[in-house]
Structure formats: structure tokens, C-alpha cells
Simulated scan of single mutants.
Amino acid sequence: MLDDIPPTARPTLSRGRFRHVIAVLVPGDAIGQDVATVRQVFGPRTAPEADVAALYEVVPCGERDELAPLETLITADTVIVPGVENPLAQRGVAVIDALRAAYAAGARMVAFGTGAFLLGHAGVLDGRRATTHWQHAREFREHFPSTRLDTESPHVDDDRVHTGAGMLSGMDLALHLLSLDVGRARAEAVGRAVIAAPRAGIRARRDGEEPMAVVMGWLREHLHEPLSLPRVAEELYISERSLVRKFRIATGDTIFEWVNRERVDRARMLLETTDRPIAEIAVAVGFGSPETLRRNFQRHVGTTARSYRHKFRHANLD
């Protein structure tokens, strides 16, 4: 796989490694969708032209036992902070110190949405231009007056510090970073593979079509809820017939085939990064019951959720 990719079309490497290490900080209130997005963009793909997994190693990090230690941030090539549910919450000294040390060590620093608050507390955004979720712009300005907040851009690059804003900013920014690393064509292939249409230049949408990225963004935010075709169409002001037809054109799937895959991906993230019981995870991702989770997990992953968790933990201990 690596032999097929010229050195000029690969992400930067450090410390003699063969893969670019992406350390994902996973605090207790991390937004699960953002954490899953990193794996979706930088992980393996079925289509060879969109498979970048050989170039990257994604490592979830944090203070919980099932995660890699915070020190991993310091030796990573890229550090990604997902959005957090409580951006104004006080963060532990160890977390902030690890982010500060990673920045000092030369890592590329990335924040999705409200994750920018953690970079701000670490001093990474001092004197820089950045963005965050628009709903928290006022609080951000109050806490970080030395940062030049840009609320008009979907994401902001300032040297090796990258921040994203609002719904879908994680997917937009992740694909943008991939484009910087491996080129626009490969990033577009990945974008098509994960069925995303980012605002910042990597667009799969054709003129005259519904913005399916908006539909998919809404679905991702409501995966944990009961979903029906009438409800989705009503919430997004689209006729059911138009929604079905255009979603199939954009993705090749029905809405609920796509939703089930997204729910399985979110379940995988929770199995990897938490100790939550499987029955609780089933409810949290929208399957409702362990049996429904088991059936869909077996179909899409080829194993049971319990076996997947065991193998993932065992692999990380080797």
C-alpha cells in the first residue's frame, strides 16, 4: 500500500516512524461524533484509492484506563481535540499540561468546534486566529481575548494550528487536513467514501441537488433518537419522495441503511473508549436493544460487540 504512494503525497512523519500518529484527546464529555469522524477519515476504506490507513495511526488518549496515556499527545505528529459538551468546564492540570507540551514539541494542533476552548486554556491559541462553535463565541472572546476569533469561516488555519466551527466542522476540517497531507484528489476520494460534502473546497454535491451534507449532519446529531422517514423529511423541510430519491443518488444507500452503519460506527467508538455496558451503548447509539445492536454489529463488523471490545483492548496492550 505504502509503495503505491509517492513520498510527496504522504503526511509528515517524525521520530523515525512509518505512520503519522494522530493522538485524539477523549475527555469525559467528548462529542462522540467528532471522535468517530477521525477514525472515519483517517481509517481504512474499502476502495483502494480512498484507503489512507497505511499512512496514519489513530490513538485515542485520555485519563481513563482504557485509553492511551496523556503522554502520547506529546510524541504525536497531530493532536486532535474533539468538540466537548461543556466547553466552560474546568479541565484537569494534566490534560492542559499535555496539550501545552504537545504544542511545544511541534505537533500539529487541531480542535473541532468547542474543543478550541481546551487549546485556548493550554495557550496554544494566544495571538492566533481561530474559530469555534458560533453558539459559544461570546464566552470564547471573554476567556481568550488575545485570540482573534473568526466566526465567518468553517475552519481556520494558522500555521500548524487548525480549528473548526459549528455542525459538521469535524468532518470538514478532517478532510481539509487530509487534503493538506496527501493532496486534494485523495482527500476527495475519502470524502466520497465517508459520504461527506465539506464546505471548504471538497464538494461532492452537484448543482441543483439537495445539500445532503445537511441531511447527514442532522441524522448524525439525532442517531440516538427514534427515526422515521416522515420525521426526517418534516424536520428538514424536504418531501419524503425527494428525500428518498436524492439520498439514494448521493450515497447509493437508503437512509436507514446509512443510519445503521453510522450507529455501528458510533458503537465501535464507545466500545473502544468507554467501559459502558453493551446494553447501555445499544440505547446510546439508537439501536434500542442489545439484540438489535448485536445483529447490526455482526452484519457490518463481522463479530459481536463484546468480542470487538476484547480484541481492541488486547491489541492495544500488545
Rank of each mutant, 00 (worst) to 15 (best):
M1D: 08
L2S: 07
D3E: 11
P7S: 05
P7C: 02
R10M: 01
R10Y: 03
P11R: 03
P11H: 05
L13G: 05
S14L: 11
R17Q: 15
R19K: 14
H20T: 03
V21Y: 04
I22C: 10
L25Y: 03
D29Q: 10
D29C: 10
G32E: 02
Q33T: 15
D34R: 07
V35S: 03
V35K: 04
T37N: 13
R39C: 14
R39V: 12
V41D: 10
T46I: 12
P48L: 03
E49W: 07
A53E: 11
A53V: 11
Y56S: 06
E71N: 06
L73I: 09
L73D: 07
I74C: 07
V79S: 04
I80N: 08
V81W: 04
P82Q: 03
P82L: 00
E85Y: 12
N86C: 11
G92E: 13
V93P: 02
I96N: 06
A98D: 02
A102R: 05
Y103D: 13
A104E: 12
A105K: 12
G106Q: 10
A107I: 08
V110M: 13
F112R: 10
T114H: 02
L118H: 06
V124W: 03
L125V: 07
L125N: 03
T131H: 07
T132V: 04
H136S: 09
E142M: 12
T147Q: 10
E152R: 15
V156A: 04
G164D: 14
G166I: 01
L175I: 07
L175V: 05
H176I: 07
V182R: 02
R184K: 12
A187D: 00
E188S: 05
V190A: 00
V190E: 00
R199K: 06
G201C: 08
R205Y: 07
D207G: 13
D207P: 11
M216I: 10
G217L: 04
H222P: 04
H224M: 09
E225C: 13
P226K: 15
P230R: 09
V232N: 02
E234M: 04
E234L: 07
S239T: 15
E240C: 13
R241C: 08
V244I: 15
V244Q: 15
R245T: 15
T251K: 13
D253H: 14
T254C: 08
I255F: 00
E257W: 03
E257C: 01
E257Y: 01
L270T: 01
I278T: 14
I278V: 15
A282D: 09
A284G: 10
A284F: 06
V285G: 06
S289V: 08
P290N: 11
R299E: 10
H300I: 05
V301R: 01
G302P: 01
T303A: 03
T304F: 02
S307K: 15
S307N: 14
Y308H: 13
N316E: 09
